[in-house]
Structure formats: C-alpha cells, structure tokens
C-alpha cells in the first residue's frame, strides 16, 4: 500500500521518548532528576535502544533536553553482543 508513513521513525522517536521521561523528572530536585532519568532508561530500555541513544549523544545529542544529556552519563553501556 502506498501511504506515506504517518508516524515518527527510529531516532526521532527515541529522542522524543527520552525527553518525555526527562519532563516528568524535571519537577524534582536536580540530583534526584538525573538519577531518575538514568535509572528509568536502564530499567526499561532494551540494549538496542540505549545504543541508539549513545549514538545520538555522541553526535552532539541534537534535540535532547539537557537533563537527558546529563543522565546519559549514568546510563549503562549495552554489552557488544546484545547491541
């Protein structure tokens, strides 16, 4: 069927999701917010998704909210075999 995709794809969506998480934790004291975002991503993001996140951050993290960038330093690196 030839319909143009009516949805976000790949990285665009990942950036959106990360920012959404950040916006919830932004209401909290800074330290809690940073660990909250990192912890959430570690707990719920599959290695493929975390690897994409690191790729986005490595390219300068365009579009990511500052809290995500800060939290990314505490996100677990996926093992090579998984990603």
């Amino acid at each position: 069927m030839s319909h143009e995709a009516g949805y976000k794809t790949g990285e665009e969506k990942l950036v959106y999701m990360a920012n959404q998480i950040a916006r919830f934790f932004e209401a909290m004291p800074h330290e809690e917010a940073v660990s909250g975002v990192a912890d959430h991503i570690n707990k719920f993001w599959e290695p493929r998704m975390r690897r994409h996140l690191f790729e986005i951050v490595a390219r300068g993290g365009e579009g990511l909210r500052p809290l995500v960038l800060e939290a990314a330093q505490r996100v677990k690196r996926p093992r090579e075999a998984d990603a």
């Binding site: 794809t9 790949g10 969506k13 707990k43 719920f44 993001w45 599959e46 290695p47 493929r48 998704m49 996926p78 093992r79 998984d82």
Partner: peptide
C-alpha cells in the same frame, strides 16, 4: 537486560 516492548519491537 530488559527486552523490547510492542512498539519498540515494531520500530526494530
């Protein structure tokens, strides 16, 4: 490691 959720499966 956590696995993929339904929407993530579709993305993948």
């Amino acid at each position: 490691e956590p696995g993929l959720r339904i929407p993530n499966m579709l993305d993948a």
